[in-house]
Design a protein around this nucleic acid. Structure first.
Lengths: 206, 206
DNA sequence: ATATGTCTGTTGCATTTGCAACAAATTATG
DNA sequence: CATAATTTGTTGCAAATGCAACAGACATAT
């Protein structure tokens, strides 16, 4: 699908969209029950974060160009528990889910395409989410790390890559304790599974 | 959305669907790279299972009436690593993802509805998957159990419920060791957080 | 009714993980 | 450039988890 074209068309046709730019560290949106907002990330990277009462901070999702997020994808129970934070300068398109579904009852060509494109977006999202579940289903930090590294390296077609998180954030993404993760990284290095210079990892010994 | 109507219509209109009945324990499908099969569970319950080389068995997903599954939702790397197993007698509708997207280029009313209905299905799926991620993101067995119990009880509007898994399967669903989970259940009981008779749980002390 | 298999429940022990605290390195910021 | 803030890297120790092994309960099949 041509996401680029879809988004441009969408913005042109639908006067109910809003476009906004955020700088690093800003909160792009907090999730609010009943609002049904949909956001498309046009530029930059951002994280969906949940802060637990326990103090744990979970990176629930990591978004880059063309990713969709917003309340439609969640059962929101508590307002403002979930929020999206810009990791770099971000451009975001906001609209309401209703615009997609409701208007489609009219028979215009545009909205037919819109629904189809949105389906594709969602399919991608489900696929991504499933790899996330796979990651979290691993029972040890070591397995999580190895699985995660394999995912990146197969996506990038190379055994050397830079982790797209800080290591602190990676721990939150894998839902493990940072120092325990560092320890495991050290052991993986010592045992010759990986090379590591800062956030740059090379996988050895397939 | 009226899923019932959607499915009946779909089956009537599209001669490329197949309907099949499975009995308890049978394998409904294994995931095969490139096939793009979509399945809708019309009746019964089934689990999506991954068997790891480590011997761990993960219940990746748990399906009931009207749930969708199939290769479209996954990045399949290894054939037959993922498979869906009937937990009770199941009726399943099979079709190919192509039928949805491709035919939509014709302007028939039916396919427009089909795409819209499918979007709704996917949205539900994403929402469910996100609660699954929330569950797996919890760092201790205790938190996973409590979160899971809260999810069930809020879904059922009651503090007493029967876990829809065997306890063995629940451990696989929460991705933890069974005996460790049993130990934690025992402690939760002793500390007065829950009552427990077999698979029947009552949550005390909100 | 008996045997077979699966599920529940339990426990001791080894391993893994989280926690806390700190130093060094790196990155932002006035 | 200097200072503050964040991130990386490390470690000892306590707590949580996984592993293994077993007994009893329950269900299913012969």
């Amino acid at each position: 699908m041509d996401m680029e074209k879809f988004i441009v068309d969408f913005e042109k046709q639908c006067n109910k969209t809003k476009r906004k730019v955020f700088s690093k560290g800003e909160t792009i949106t907090t999730y609010i029950r009943g609002r049904q907002q949909v956001c498309i990330l046009l530029e930059g990277t951002a994280d969906l974060i949940r802060c637990e009462r326990s103090g744990d901070r979970i990176i629930v999702d990591h978004f880059s160009k063309n990713d969709v997020f917003g309340e439609v994808f969640y059962n929101i129970t508590t307002n403002r528990e979930l929020f999206v934070e810009a990791k770099q300068k971000c451009t975001v398109l906001f609209f309401v889910y209703d615009n997609i579904v409701t208007k489609c009852k009219q028979n215009c060509r545009f909205h037919k395409e819109l629904v189809a494109s949105f389906s594709e977006l969602m399919l991608d999202k489900i696929t991504l989410q499933n790899t996330r579940v796979e990651l979290l289903s691993k029972r040890s930090i070591r397995e999580k790390l190895i699985t995660y590294f394999k995912m990146i390296s197969s996506k990038n077609f190379t055994n050397s890559f830079t982790v797209p998180f800080s290591l602190t954030d990676l721990a939150d993404y894998l839902c493990v304790d940072r120092s325990a993760m560092m320890r495991e990284l050290k052991m993986l290095k010592e045992e010759g599974f990986i090379e590591k210079i800062g956030n740059k990892i090379t996988m050895l010994s397939q």
